[in-house]
Design a protein around this nucleic acid. Structure first.
Length: 205
DNA sequence: AGAACGATCGACT
DNA sequence: GTCGATCGTTCTA
């Protein structure tokens, strides 16, 4: 199965955040692929970025994985209720990651819906807010700190260019445009607050 | 040991 | 737009 290699993640974090847009995030759960097309990302770089958990190389139990080799999952628990998924980037020793802020469902939708909403009925509101936030991505794909540190070159969690890479039909995506802007929820981060390190895909017209 | 806080979400006005 | 939920991580002492 084709998937993004360790070299992809070893590169520049901002570039990786941009290049991840439109690619397919695959989470294998009980033998079933749960797949989301990545539509929003953010870059975090410990060396120079006050918004990064590992700012100025701050190394703790939580940030330890960011210092390790690239191409691993960094999943942390936030606000007492939610989880956020990141991909570790840059060479080993440079703590950095790309936060996956949003995906649109591409396969395994029934299972994803159950993980997100249980038996509650689908509504237009829930459809619109299916996985358009980092906590919703993790909830929909069944990701918790149990999956922290997973190797993204393995068989449980990985990214591929197209659905055909995992043997599924791949419809051509709608016309979209890449946008960039400041990151979300980091008002405390002083000058880093304004770094345009958030990237997303927007429908044309 | 205790306190403060957070890369969020959904309900509600 | 506002606001409460809920708890692991981190820092202070």
């Amino acid at each position: 199965m084709t998937r993004l290699s360790r070299e992809f993640y070893a590169g520049d974090t901002v570039e990786a955040a941009r290049k991840l847009l439109g690619k397919y995030l695959v989470r294998m759960l009980d033998g079933e692929p749960l797949v989301g097309r990545i539509t929003e990302t953010e870059a975090y770089i410990g060396r120079c970025d006050k918004a990064c958990h590992a700012y100025h190389y701050r190394r703790t139990g939580r940030t330890d994985v960011l210092f390790g080799p690239p191409g691993h999952a960094y999943i942390y628990f936030i606000y007492g209720m939610y989880h956020c998924l990141n991909f570790v980037t840059e060479p080993e020793g440079e703590p950095a990651a790309v936060l996956i802020r949003a995906v649109e469902p591409a396969a395994g939708i029934r299972t994803i819906r159950r993980l997100r909403f249980g038996d509650r009925p689908m509504t237009p509101y829930r459809k619109k807010n299916f996985m358009n936030g980092p906590g919703k991505v993790c909830q929909g794909l069944g990701l918790t700190t149990a999956e922290n540190r997973l190797d993204l070159t393995g068989d449980v969690l990985f990214v591929c260019e197209a659905l055909t890479d995992i043997g599924l039909p791949c419809p051509s995506p709608p016309k979209e445009r890449m946008r960039s802007g400041p990151r979300v929820g980091i008002d405390y981060a002083e000058e880093a607050r304004d770094f345009p390190w958030r990237f997303w895909l927007e429908k044309e017209e």
